[in-house]
Design a protein around this nucleic acid. Structure first.
Ligand SMILES: [Mn+2]
Ligand SMILES: [Mn+2]
Ligand SMILES: [Mn+2]
Ligand SMILES: [Mn+2]
Lengths: 219, 219
DNA sequence: AAAAAAGTTTAGACAAATCTAAAAATTTAT
DNA sequence: ATAAATTTTTAGATTTGTCTAAACTTTTTT
C-alpha cells in the first residue's frame, strides 16, 4: 500500500506520540501536526478504513501492526537520507531535517536498499537515533561517550552532542565522520586525554573535552 | 517562487514540447501529461497568473524567460539525481527515471549545489543528456563514440548506448563509470581495438565493438 | 448529581487538481 | 463562403485535504 505524503506524516506523528503514551488523542495529534482537530478526525476515519490503526470515537487511536510497520519504513527512509546528507554531502545538522522531511516520501524499495548499502548500513542517523532495518526492527544500541569507551574495544562514531562550527573544525581535522571505526588505544590519567585509532589513519590524541562530546556505539 | 510538483511537471512538459515547435497547444500538452484538455486550460490560466508563460486563448502558449529558467532548474535536479542513482547507487538505467521524477521535486538550493559537487559536477546524465548549471545554462557538449576520440585527447565517459547486463559486466570489469576520465593512448589498426587509460588505472585494451558503444564528451 | 469545562465529532464551506459533457472558436474541406 | 471537422474553452461535478463553527460526549468541578 502506498500512502500520500500527508497520510504518511500523520502515521509518523502518531508513531512518535504513542511512544510516549500508549494511546494518542485528537488534540495532541492536531497540535503536533499544526492542524485542526477536525482534520485529524477526518484522517483517522480514513486511516481506519485503510486498516492502519484502531480508533474508537472519543477515545483516541493507536497504530496496529501494519501501521507500526509503515511508520518504521518512513522513519527508516528519513534517517537514511539524513545520514546521506551529512556523511556524503557534508551538510550541517540543523539543515538536514527539513530536507529529509521531503526525501522520506520518495518511495522505491530498491532505492532505499541501495542507499542503505551505499552508506555502509549505518545504525544511527546523525542525531544518534537508531535506523530501523528493512523489516522494521530498530537496532538495539548502547550509545556511550567516547570517554567512557572500554580501552581497545572497537566502536563506531554515532553522533556528536556539540554541533558548533568549532566542533566541526575539529572533527574535520581528525577526519572523524559518522560511521567511522574508532578504538581507544591508550588513556592518559593526567588530563583524561585519549590516544585513538580512527579508521585506517595513524593514531592521534583527543582531549577529554572532545571525548566527552563524541558518542559511539560499542556493540 | 516555489511551485507544487504538479505545476512543475506542467512547466517541464511545456519546455520539452516547445523545444520541438515554438508554440505548444492544449491537446499536445494534455497528451504528453496524460490528462484532459480541460485540466490543461485550467493550469495555463494559473501559470499565466503566476507570470511563467504567455498564453493567448485558442492560440497556445509558450514559457517566458522566468518559466524557462524554472524548467531548467527542474531538469537540472532530475538529471543530477539520475546521475547519482547510477554512479553512486549502481542502479540500472531503466529504473532511474521514475525515481528521479519524484526526487526532482525536492527543493533546496544548497542540497542541489552540494549534490552537484559530490557527483563531481557532471555535464551529462546517464542517458547522455546535458545537465544545466545553476544559472540554467546547458553545457554545449560534443558527444562522440570512444572509437572516434582523437588519440591522447582527454575525455569523459558520458553514456553507453548498449545497456545490457553483458555491457554492464564489461564496464564493471574495466571500472568504467559515468564521469570517468578517459584517454586513448594507442589504436591498433588490425582489429580497431584501443589502448585506453581510465582514471588512474593502468592502461588496458578495449575492443572496437566496446569502443563503438561507449560515448564520451571531449570538450 | 448537576453544572462547567474540556475534548471530540459533525456539518458545511473552501481550494487545488481532476474529470465529463456541452458550448464556442478556429481551421479545413467543399 | 458555407459547412464540417477539429481544437479549445467553459460549466458543473468530484476527490483530497483543509478550515470554522456548532453540536455532541466525556471529564472535572462544585
Ligand atoms: Mn529528522
Ligand atoms: Mn514528511
Ligand atoms: Mn529521466
Ligand atoms: Mn516530476
Amino acid at each position: 500500500m502506498k500512502l500520500s505524503p500527508i497520510e504518511e506524516n500523520y502515521i509518523k506523528s502518531i508513531y512518535y506520540l504513542q511512544a510516549k503514551k500508549g494511546n494518542v488523542n485528537t488534540n495532541s495529534l492536531a497540535a503536533h501536526l499544526e492542524t485542526s482537530a477536525a482534520s485529524v478526525t477526518d484522517m483517522m476515519k480514513k486511516l481506519k478504513r485503510k486498516k492502519l490503526l484502531e480508533y474508537k470515537k472519543y477515545y483516541g487511536f493507536r497504530l496496529n501492526a501494519a501501521g507500526n510497520l509503515y511508520a518504521l519504513e518512513i522513519i527508516r527512509r528519513h534517517r537514511l537520507w539524513e545520514f546521506f546528507l551529512v556523511s556524503k554531502l557534508g551538510m550541517q545538522w540543523e539543515k538536514i531535517h527539513d530536507i529529509a522531511e521531503q526525501l522520506e516520501h520518495v518511495s522505491n524499495d530498491e532505492l532505499i536498499k541501495k542507499l542503505d548499502d551505499f552508506l555502509g548500513n549505518p545504525k544511527t542517523d546523525p542525531h544518534g537515533d537508531p535506523i530501523p532495518n528493512e523489516k522494521g526492527v530498530m537496532p538495539v544500541l548502547r550509545q556511550i561517550a567516547l570517554k567512557d569507551l572500554t580501552i581497545k574495544k572497537n566502536a563506531m562514531v554515532s553522533s556528536v552532542s556539540n554541533q558548533t562550527p568549532q566542533m566541526m573544525e575539529m572533527l574535520n581535522h581528525y577526519k572523524i565522520k559518522l560511521g567511522s571505526h574508532i578504538k581507544v588505544t591508550k588513556q592518559f590519567v593526567f588530563d583524561g586525554s585519549l590516544q585513538v585509532k580512527i579508521d585506517k589513519q595513524p593514531e592521534c590524541i583527543i582531549s577529554s573535552m572532545g571525548a566527552k562530546n563524541i558518542f559511539v556505539y560499542d556493540n
